[in-house]
Design a protein around this nucleic acid. Structure first.
Lengths: 156, 156
DNA sequence: AGAAAAAAAGACATCCATATCGAAAAGTCC
DNA sequence: GGACTTTTCGATATGGATGTCTTTTTTTCT
């Protein structure tokens, strides 16, 4: 339903929303904290930068940070950068002709389920998600502190 | 959501439910009528035979036919032969720990959508599906007659 | 018995999402 | 300016779903 790429994006942004005070966070740091392959996450973050959700800073003390306030960022915007969930995009039976008029036998049920899920993505903000106790995939927010690089404090 | 393999299976069985009077139907014939790659469909049908949904007959005048009355065949049984939709199987955020107790932020919404869809699959029979005007992926049942091999009539 | 027809079975090819690697470009700090 | 750090970019590898091809086995017809 959601590709792994979307899942990585959501978790990485939730992580950023927790730490974000306007300073830059390294790909490496996020990857270590969330147990995501670092080179792959780099591309995910880059896509999010192109999509206008993140901004990037190269060079020493660079990294990524959120552009908008996470209050203003619906999960749908994140997912849409990777998986197209637009209405009428996909027929659950894989039929080429499947619209409200020429519906496949499962069209209406499927449309209802998909709409319900899409609505949830549109109305849930990144802030709400990141406040959930299990937002990152493990119960405790403990690992965050451990993942911070030694010279990160010096810079902040 | 449904793999293409499941989609092929559903459409092929709908086709059989329409023609079924107890005689055998060729893979080739189904594949031609539904525009599915014939060798691939052969494997799909074979899996359905192992699952006890179809029975097969080798040799001349052989083919496949339904075991049960399609009235007694919920779509869920078809899908389950290929895609595991069992409850608690998959977390939409891809988290390893995600149950009713340790839920991910989208767990409940997702569970609701999935349950709703699964319920529809469990309560819809193959007969109901095949009676839908667009069951096969194209509006008219016309192509069926054309797809019948010349010497098929002789045998029937 | 022999030929033909069809499913069964397995080897192989292709495609795409995922993942990895290395080099280039850009920025920072001394 | 030069060393270093980090993103950016492109090439490449991998695994699973999908698709193709060939051989074997079983059955029927003549």
């Amino acid at each position: 339903m959601l590709s792994r790429t979307s899942q990585y994006a959501i978790r990485a942004l939730a992580y950023l929303a927790m730490r974000e005070r306007g300073h830059w966070v390294l790909t490496r740091q996020i990857a270590a904290a969330l147990d995501i392959p670092s080179p792959f996450l780099a591309k995910v973050l880059q896509t999010l930068a192109v999509a206008g959700i993140l901004e990037s800073q190269r060079g020493r003390n660079g990294g990524f940070r959120l552009v908008r306030n996470p209050d203003r960022l619906p999960l749908f915007d994140i997912v849409e950068a990777f998986d197209k969930l637009g209405p009428g995009r996909l027929c659950v039976l894989g039929q080429k002709v499947c619209s409200d008029e020429t519906a496949c036998p499962l069209h209406h049920t499927w449309k209802h389920s998909l709409n319900s899920f899409r609505h949830r993505l549109q109305t849930t903000t990144l802030t709400e998600l990141s406040q959930h106790p299990n937002a990152l995939g493990f119960p405790s927010p403990k690992p965050i502190a451990d993942a911070v690089a030694p010279d990160f404090h010096k810079a902040g």
